[in-house]
Design a protein around this nucleic acid. Sequence first.
DNA 1: CGCAGGTTTGACTTCACTCAATCGGCGTGG
DNA 2: CCACGCCGATTGAGTGAAGTCAAACCTGCG
Lengths: 215, 215
Amino acid sequence: MFAQQVTRSSPAAGQLITIAPGLALPGLTMTFAADEEIFGQEEAAEFVYKVLSGAVRTSCVRSDGSRHIGDFHLPGDVFGLAAGATHRACAEAIVTSKIGLVRRSTLERAAERDGDAARQLWSLTSRELANLQDHLRLLSQKDATRRVGAFLLKLSRRGSSATLELPMSREDIGDHLGLTLETVSRAFGRLTRDQAIALPSARRVVVRDTAALAA
Amino acid sequence: MFAQQVTRSSPAAGQLITIAPGLALPGLTMTFAADEEIFGQEEAAEFVYKVLSGAVRTSCVRSDGSRHIGDFHLPGDVFGLAAGATHRACAEAIVTSKIGLVRRSTLERAAERDGDAARQLWSLTSRELANLQDHLRLLSQKDATRRVGAFLLKLSRRGSSATLELPMSREDIGDHLGLTLETVSRAFGRLTRDQAIALPSARRVVVRDTAALAA
DNA sequence: CGCAGGTTTGACTTCACTCAATCGGCGTGG
DNA sequence: CCACGCCGATTGAGTGAAGTCAAACCTGCG
């Protein structure tokens, strides 16, 4: 059931990781296999992470055993920045992923030295917060099809092409949107029938009508 | 239907507003009547606000006309900090509220001068983000009673006494939790029957069993 | 070629929404 | 001081959308 650290690569040190435009800091890169844990809930927050390739989900388990996926992180995204002393969620690679790591202490020293770096970090956190507010608005919306549509729309805005390659399963999407995997699947079906998207395969989505998704 | 600026007080300038522990900045205080707008959606974000007394809701209207309440702000809370150039939501006083205002430019100058101030602001934003993540976890939970229970629990942790005075209506709570006002009312009823809370009056809640609320 | 995983589809149930009526407190005015 | 009216809250009946359980279906991979 759980991630096994089968193919964790030996860390490569001495890399420069670009945390924000104009803010590159020394760190290391590691490769994580699918379903491998990057950091755990309640774990001390030692690093800040950046997705170089692959995809990551940050999730936590509720008291009733159900899982909540806070967010998905795609190449270019920085995550683990919002944590306090310990992580409030765990992060796992969805597919094989190359991750850049920068020590928080490195970050803090850079912020102290350089006011511009501090502002970049502040701005990064603010943008993350705005993202979260959007997602909140999405979730407080009830209609399942709209939720899935908005989710796909957000993904499609990231990619250059109209075709999306989904790294995550229906269950992952469900746990992110507060729906069951069956409902997510039915929403895909309805969107396909309504010509809003096309589904060449289960994990490949072609966005046909962005307006219909936003509806 | 909408806020009317009936009793807006003339602003009192030259006050020191405590934005964060050890970060008091010059600003002004204003008093807003119930349902009066503090700032509007799409409005330029000129100030950062702090609740001195009363209660505030930040909300926005979705494309389908329904209202989403992002958060409630109680005395001591700072809001409007996360905004970019313009506000992404509007803020209204729920009851008569005294609000402290500090210009963003004042804040930014303080952050540039003083590294510690910058860190305080960063930390404030991070805490707001963590709050939002909690709320997200709450919302992706389906059970209406649990949502309301968790909401009351969060409120009760703020107050010193076990008795809560709710400034907001059932509809406000519903728009915050993604429920209808009737469902909120039924959840209150169920929690009362289960001895988790007592309801001396509609707007007064006595928390009897915190464990039952968390369940 | 067959297995295992994720995905789709189906039948049934449950829970929240909708619409509607009633209740209750509070302020106003007679 | 009491009666009325207003507004928010509660309660009820019926509907609909998503959840649950279960079976069938791909599809990539050993």
